[in-house]
Design a protein around this nucleic acid. Structure first.
Length: 887
RNA sequence: GGGCAAUUAGCUCAGCUGGUUAGAGCGCGUGCCUCACAUGCACGAGGUCAUAGGUUCAAGUCCUAUAUUGCCCACCA
């Protein structure tokens, strides 16, 4: 027998096995298979990403599902890949450029894109390597990237189809503008955050009078773009304004008074300044009342020439200050008061977003949303936990059009060409002649035959490629076997933040382009937080690096620990200490295996447990561990199928540690050289390992490889089947009674400080012959585990004088302790037990004396209470007699 | 403003359709290097299940309020 180290060393094991698995092609799915398919598409991590605990959780869950399904006989495909992450990646490369003192404009579009591709070659697969360290069993041969040729074609195809269907349009609307990234963002990409701002009250003079109207605003600099002031028609304060004209301070522009119900009388002064180019409500008002918007800002949020000579060129916030000073001088400033309000911030760089009127491309969402609402309402797609269904439906029912154009360079360029002869590319609307949606650059304009065609300079939102992921990765728009076999996928595993960005849109695109749902289940896991409940983020510096944990504790330890505390959909609170759980468990598994390996003989292990179903020579302990084993496998299987991963982890943990190691292995030491015992030990270990494998792939494979076994890797072996014939509740109970007996003796030993080495004598009084017999059959177990020399068992057993006593079910246990026992203290101990029993007894009495309970509750429940009462009464009697015997 | 979670042992949390004595890990106390494991073993202490009502024969579990905490959504300028 080879030397097996005392402490499990994950490092070597993990590297060795991952290479082996990958090399043997175990991760690869065969689309020519006859097996039933099971597939999962990975939420593609950004190429700029590095592995964090959120990924660790997300991908561990997926890997558990995938390994479980693979072992369960499915042709299993976990489709991996990465996302080009338009804005994020462009930002990273721009930052590197600026270190060289360069700006992307200097390089030009083509050169800049070359730099981005080069960056991606160098760093873009970092996250993939990290996922491998997590043990992910993805089919890496199929790895895709959202900017691949194939996926890019899918993007273009989708754009053109939607355009031709009239679901994509170009128009002037208020969008969220990030002044730092200098691009439009979708509503989802603008994150609302509470900001402590100021509410400024400003006088707008009424022309031709000495009077004025007071407006209140949080962004005074936008007043330079005001075109009207709106009040509620029901507001009596402003009735007199009808027919009057206001004068915009500083710029002296004339402002109309408009009346609209949308204005809240109670808010501010009830008079709303209308800036259609810089506020969504104002934009609506402008359209409704025929007002021409005036844009006063440049793309970088400095003021433009429309803001007037004084302010043109100033930054928006600088302008705000200067303007307030100006108004003060002119006597038009009343006051400013602190005001907390929600302001949009760029989800990539956290800069304050500026609502801005601009020409962008949009997807009309309502028609796409309708069928996507249906499939969820009908239960074709299920969310786990179900509460997310409501969140999804609520968003879908109020869906707004999706702004998909971005003014950056890194991404899928919009497949639209403009004929310079027909149309101005900078102003063209989608309906205009000379706007052509096409994958390739057209030779000439279909309208005028002009050949001077230019492509739209914008690129598409990153999510415009991700929303196609569940079918574009399989080759769509090509029709092939992968697509046919693996779409729709089995389950989508993701975090709540991404339901709107991604999940909802995938459902819509799947139904639109594949005419079928993209997945049946959506499992939403919680957010990973630190132990104070703060979301882990790099900027806060409270991250625990999964790779560091893998180095220190091992990958299996990381996976087990994180899974064992992830109850369905709840957030996960982590501290470094928590990973000790997994490490210790791995070590436990390691050591019990080590013990067995040094004792098992090869020839004793082959065969099947079925032969034992009715074998009378099995001991109670043998039957018990088999019953527990199959119960455990059954329970773990069901838990994984129900996405209750923590339950699965804790069930197998408890079985291996507290049932197998603590009891059965200890019992087996008496008979370990027997063939039958060896066989059972081996079988239980081997099946436990398979059950544990999806959660702890490496250590299970390592031990598997040391065990004698017939087939190859554990990861392509079968998920253990459940032999229900061997699950037996009666056996469980009988064993519990032996365990209780041992525990009772141990408790007394500990209470009276009997040295571990010292052997003692015990007398056990039983109620009948059958109990005596069954106890006698297990006498050696009790002797060994409770360190007892001699046990007298019998119905007529006599209590020795000065004994410590215990009541175990319907038996009584006596340990003579003359000279050791303190009668008073033992009395107190018994008294405590008596009080407890009296408490329980009172409860049952209360229930049974309640007529309504006896009549109303189900018979079994009443019977149960009656039995319980009897048992408690018996126990009480014994305890009391033991107490009085002490005197 | 709307919605969703959470509140159970000192700490972090399980407890799924209401029904025997409410569990785990960590921590704590005591004793052990017992021939697999001190990343271990044995034993123990510790809970009026946030509060107040209600439904029910029966509530940690269902309902309604309240409180505290956290998250998401939202065009009150």
């Amino acid at each position: 027998m080879q030397e097996i180290p005392k402490v499990y060393n994950p490092k070597e094991t993990e590297e060795k096995w991952y290479k082996e698995w990958e090399g043997k092609g175990y991760f690869h799915a065969d689309s020519g298979t006859k097996k039933k398919p099971y597939s999962i598409v990975i939420p593609p991590p950004n190429i700029t990403g590095i592995l964090h605990m959120g990924h660790a959780l997300n991908n561990t869950i997926q890997d558990i599902l995938v390994r479980f399904k693979r072992m369960s006989g499915f042709e299993t495909l976990w489709m991996p890949g990465t996302d080009h992450a338009g804005i994020a990646t462009q930002n990273v490369v721009e930052k590197r450029l600026s270190k060289e003192g360069k700006h992307r404009e200097e390089l030009g579009r083509e050169e800049f894109l070359k730099r981005v591709w080069k960056w991606r070659e160098e760093y873009g697969s970092t996250i993939i390597h990290q996922l491998k360290r997590l043990g992910c069993s993805c089919d890496w041969e199929r790895t895709r990237f959202t900017m691949d040729e194939g996926l890019s074609e899918a993007v273009q195809e989708v754009f053109i189809r939607l355009y031709e269907k009239g679901l994509i349009y170009r128009g002037d609307y208020i969008i969220n503008w990030c002044p730092r990234c200098q691009t439009a963002l979708s509503d989802e990409e603008s994150e609302h955050r509470d900001v402590q701002g100021m509410f400024y009250h400003i006088k707008y003079p009424i022309k031709g009078t000495n009077e004025h109207v007071v407006v209140a605003t949080t962004r005074p600099e936008t007043m330079l773009g005001d075109v009207a002031v709106a009040v509620n028609p029901k507001d009596k304060r402003y009735k007199h304004l009808k027919g009057k004209v206001l004068e915009l301070p500083v710029l002296k522009r004339e402002l109309k008074i408009i009346y609209d119900e949308i204005v809240d009388k109670e808010f501010g002064t009830g008079a709303l300044k209308v800036t259609p180019a810089h506020d969504p409500i104002d934009f609506q008002l402008g359209q409704k009342h025929g007002l021409k918007p005036i844009n006063v800002m440049n793309p970088d949020a400095t003021m433009n020439e429309n803001a007037g000579e004084t302010y043109s060129g100033m930054d928006r916030l600088e302008c705000r200050e200067a303007l307030i000073e100006d108004l003060k001088e002119r006597g038009l400033f009343i006051k400013s008061e602190p005001h907390r309000h929600a302001v949009g911030h760029c989800y990539r760089c956290h800069t304050m977003v500026e609502p801005r009127l601009s020409l962008q491309w949009f997807v009309k969402m309502k028609p796409l949303a309708k069928p996507a609402i249906e499939v969820v309402k009908k239960g074709k797609i299920k969310f786990h936990p179900t509460r997310w269904t409501k969140v999804y439906l609520n968003w879908m029912e109020n869906i707004r059009d999706w702004c998909i154009s971005r003014q950056i360079w890194w991404g899928h360029r919009i497949p639209v060409y403009y004929c310079k002869a027909c149309v101005d590319p900078v102003k063209a609307k989608d309906k205009d002649a000379g706007v052509i949606a096409s994958k390739e650059k057209p030779k000439k304009c279909p309208k005028c035959g002009g050949t001077d065609l230019v492509q739209d300079t914008d690129v598409l939102d990153t999510w415009f490629s991700s929303w196609l992921w569940p079918f574009s990765t399989f080759g769509w728009p090509q029709k092939n076997r992968d697509l046919k076999l693996f779409y729709p996928t089995g389950c989508l595993v993701t975090a709540q933040e991404i339901i709107f960005f991604w999940v909802a849109r995938m459902i819509m695109s799947g139904l639109e382009f594949m005419k079928e749902i993209p997945f049946k289940d959506v499992y939403i896991h919680g957010t990973v937080r630190d132990d104070t409940g703060t979301k882990m983020s790099k900027s806060l510096g409270n991250v625990i690096d999964p790779l560091e944990i893998i180095d220190e504790f091992g990958c299996d330890a990381l996976r087990f620990s994180i899974i064992s505390i992830t109850s369905t959909g709840q957030d996960v609170f982590l501290s470094k200490k928590r990973f000790e759980t997994g490490r210790n468990f791995a070590n436990k598994v390691w050591n019990v295996s080590r013990f067995l390996l040094t004792n098992l003989k090869q020839e004793n292990v082959p065969g099947d447990l079925c032969v034992f179903a009715k074998d009378p020579s099995l001991t109670l302990a043998d039957r018990w561990i088999l019953s527990r084993l199959y119960e455990t496998i059954d329970s773990v299987t069901k838990s994984i199928e129900k996405y209750r991963f923590n339950e699965a982890a804790n069930t197998i943990y408890d079985f291996i540690w507290h049932q197998f190691c603590d009891w059965y292995v200890e019992f087996s030491k008496l008979t370990i050289d027997q063939k039958k015992t060896q066989f059972i030990l081996y079988k239980v270990l081997e099946k436990s390992l398979r059950t544990l494998h999806p959660i702890m792939p490496f250590i299970t494979e390592e031990i598997w490889s040391l065990l004698p076994h017939e087939e190859g890797s554990i990861m392509v072996n079968k998920w253990p089947h459940v032999n229900k014939d061997l699950i037996d509740v009666k056996i469980d109970k009988a064993m519990d009674s032996i365990i209780e007996q041992i525990t009772a003796i141990r408790t007394i030993r500990a209470t009276w400080r009997i040295e571990p080495i010292k052997r003692i004598e015990v007398v056990i009084k039983t109620p009948n012959k059958a109990t005596t017999k069954s106890l006698n059959e297990n006498i050696d177990y009790i002797k060994r585990l409770a360190r007892v020399d001699k046990i007298d068992i019998g119905e007529k057993a006599k209590k020795p004088p000065k004994s410590a006593t215990a009541v175990v079910g319907n038996m009584e246990t006596y340990i003579p302790l003359a000279g050791i026992i303190d009668l008073e203290k033992e009395g107190a101990r018994l008294k405590k037990q008596i009080d407890q029993v009296i408490g329980w007894l009172d409860n049952t009495k209360k229930k049974l004396s309640n007529k309504k309970f006896v009549e109303g509750a189900p018979k079994e429940v009443v019977e149960q209470q009656k039995t319980r009462q009897k048992e408690l009464q018996e126990e009480l009697k014994k305890l009391k007699s033991n107490l009085s015997d002490l005197k």
